[in-house]
């Protein structure tokens, strides 16, 4: 199970709540670190699936790495 790490330019609770709602629909384990603007997603799926989904939130998203 890989952990994909993304930078997502979230600035407030509403933003992190929106990201959480998007990821809940994808049914994956995830963790949102609002202060550091990081989103960690545990999944075997390819990171691009999440890159696309996160980009739909309208936030600036960059892929960092997979652990």
């Amino acid at each position: 199970m890989a952990t994909h790490v993304f930078f997502v330019d979230m600035t407030c609770e509403g933003c992190s709540g929106a990201v959480a709602r998007v990821l809940k629909k994808l049914d994956v384990k995830f963790d949102i670190d609002l202060p550091n603007k990081k989103v960690l997603i545990e999944s075997d799926k390819d990171k691009d699936v999440f890159l696309e989904a996160l980009k739909k939130t309208g936030k600036t998203v960059t892929y960092i790495n997979s652990k």
Binding site: T11, C12, E13, G14, C15, G17, A18, R21, K56, T57, G58, K59
Partner: peptide
């Protein structure tokens, strides 16, 4: 539902 601040408003308006 789900907006808490102005940055959410701007994000939605631009997206």
């Amino acid at each position: 539902e789900g907006m808490t601040c102005d940055s959410c408003v701007q994000t939605i308006e631009s997206q």
